[in-house]
């Protein structure tokens, strides 16, 4: 059973179609990279997947659950890391994680265990009891990632996972994504850093002007450009989106 099944998804803002008849199926344990230039419809798709926007038409199921019919069950198995997350400035990191644990109805002792685990993993010990207003962007990103992982989701939706992270943390997050995928967690990640997609993703999808113009493994996508053999994903991406613009 696919973890994400998007069927003919369209989102219209007034006259403008931000997402146009998108069809996509992502399997359990797969790492899927969602690529596209600015304003292509990536964030809109992610917002619909996470219940922050409602589709104009189409159907989405997450783990077999229709997100429009039973959004709470769909959200319960999803962990979301937004690109620019909101964190209450006047809460400490620990208090923020306790809040999120409460929102997932986790037992208190489990919340504390999870906080300890992710604090150790991301080396957040020195920050956990200080207000989040003093955090750097990278620290905030680690905190939000911890929050998204606390309830051990079956699906992770990550918007720009590496923004603001130092090289050590970047490596750590990459390894985490890979290991989670091996454990069966599906990863849906949107990124501008094509080398990240190339390195991590089993499959990528390129969206442009709301239309999914290509899907496949990074090597399959490269073949689509019909150019020389050792071409990078970036070159292919530019070529494909340029063609989209010309059309």
């Amino acid at each position: 059973m696919p973890m994400i099944e998007i069927d003919n998804l369209t989102k219209q803002f007034g006259e403008k179609k931000a997402v146009d008849a998108l069809n996509l199926s992502i399997q359990e344990g797969e790492i899927f990279g969602f690529l596209g230039p600015n304003g292509a419809g990536k964030t809109t798709t992610i917002k619909i997947l996470t219940g922050l926007l409602r589709p104009t038409s189409g159907k989405i199921t997450i783990g077999g659950v229709d997100i429009l019919k039973d959004p709470q069950s769909a959200k319960y198995i999803t962990g979301y890391v937004p690109e620019d997350p909101f964190i209450y400035d006047k809460l400490t990191g620990r208090e923020f994680l306790q809040l999120v644990g409460g929102l997932y109805s986790l037992a208190d002792n489990l919340i504390e265990d999870q906080i300890q685990y992710w604090t150790d993993f991301f080396q957040l010990e020195t920050y956990m009891d200080t207000l989040t207003e003093s955090y750097s962007h990278g620290t905030k990103q680690k905190l939000v990632m911890s929050a998204a992982l606390m309830h051990e989701p079956r699906l992770m939706i990550i918007d720009e996972p590496m923004v603001g992270l130092d090289p050590i943390s970047t490596r750590k997050v990459k390894d985490l994504i890979k290991s989670k995928s091996q454990e069966g967690t599906t990863i849906f990640l949107s990124t501008h850093i094509l080398s990240v997609a190339e390195e991590l993703c089993d499959r990528v999808g390129i969206i442009h002007q709301g239309i999914l113009i290509a899907t496949g493994s990074p090597s399959e996508i490269k073949q689509m450009s019909k150019s020389e053999e050792n071409v990078s994903l970036e070159t292919v991406f530019l070529k494909l989106t340029e063609n989209g613009n010309n059309q």
């Binding site: 069950s73 319960y76 209450y88 006047k90 809460l91 208090e95 809040l99 409460g102 929102l103 109805s105």
Partner: peptide, 27 residues
Amino acid sequence: MTPPKDSVFKTVMVIHKVRYQVINNWI
């Protein structure tokens, strides 16, 4: 996997607790 049936009151309190934590941190 379906989410546990959460009590509305309990969840409201979980969210509302933030307000008191903010005041507490401020003090």
